[in-house]
């Protein structure tokens, strides 16, 4: 596996809702095996960018390459092959409420592999114990707390051993201990399995713990892309405020 190979490349991506520009000429590269964090203040276009990368929204113009292939020009069947190598954890979990937890986690395996049912169940059990949710195996999503739903969603996202894992606000609404555990889990996945991880978040603690590189979006514009040290050196007013590096914020403390 080549280090520093660009697994996702985005060129001049522009997106609009009606007439409002949400993403303005975004270009970026995400390297294989890194933890890439998309951040910025609310309404900056973070989640919109994520949804464009995973194909839920179509941009006005621009180019998105995943595994070196342009996903915007390809047929649905071809894109579905790429999606099978991707895991996504949504903000609210997005578990199917009509199914038990284990069925939710088993879904991708059931539909995209020809594994026997007993093997699928064993894989599901293993992934659920990875996120510490053995006891939730036969529960319904409505019986879980918010944090548990997120962890089940993570188990579902990694059940196919994806090459890229996307997180939409993984630690929003979690207590600091659970959030830290989740971050540990993310780092573990990255180290053990070499998964590329893309996280949308604005949880400061979490960013500092996990980020290899960050992208800072301000009103849909890419104002910074690089490591945290470089971000500090860039000395941008808004970023300084965001990270608490500016004088103004310090005074308030």
């Amino acid at each position: 596996m080549m280090q520093n190979e660009n697994i996702i490349q985005i060129r001049d991506l522009t997106a609009k809702y009606d007439d409002r520009i949400i993403l303005d000429n975004i270009s970026l590269n995400i390297r294989r095996g890194e933890v890439f964090v998309i951040l910025g203040s609310s309404g900056g276009g973070k989640t919109t960018l994520l949804k464009h990368i995973i194909g839920l929204l179509k941009p006005v113009s621009g180019e998105i390459n995943i595994f070196g292939k342009n996903t915007l020009s390809m047929e649905l069947e071809e894109f579905e092959e790429i999606l099978k190598k991707i895991g996504v954890q949504f903000q609210g979990g997005a578990l199917l409420n009509s199914m038990e937890v284990w069925e939710n986690v088993a879904m991708p395996l059931e539909h995209h592999t020809r594994l026997p049912v007993s093997t699928i169940r064993n894989i599901v059990k293993q992934k659920l114990s990875l996120v510490n949710l053995k006891h939730a195996y036969r529960l319904f999503p409505s019986e879980l707390s918010g944090g548990m739903k997120k962890r089940v969603a993570l188990a579902r996202a990694i059940v196919m051993d994806p090459e890229i894992l996307f997180f939409d606000e993984p630690s929003a609404g979690l207590d600091p201990i659970t959030a830290a555990e989740l971050d540990e889990l993310i780092l573990e996945l990255q180290k053990k399995l070499g998964i590329t991880i893309v996280v949308v978040t604005h949880e400061l603690e979490s960013i500092k713990r996990i980020a290899d590189r960050v992208l800072y979006l301000q009103k849909g514009k890419n104002i910074f892309c690089g490591t945290l040290e470089e971000a500090k050196a860039a000395d941008n007013d808004e970023m300084n405020q965001f990270f608490g590096w500016s004088e103004k914020v310090k005074r308030h403390k």
Binding site: E81, F90, G92, A94, L96, H111
Partner: peptide
């Protein structure tokens, strides 16, 4: 509509399930 609001449809789509 409930599936749409709770992002279940999005989740299906990114699991390559139409």
């Amino acid at each position: 509509s409930t599936m749409k609001i709770t992002e279940e449809l999005d989740a299906l789509q990114v699991m390559a399930l139409n």
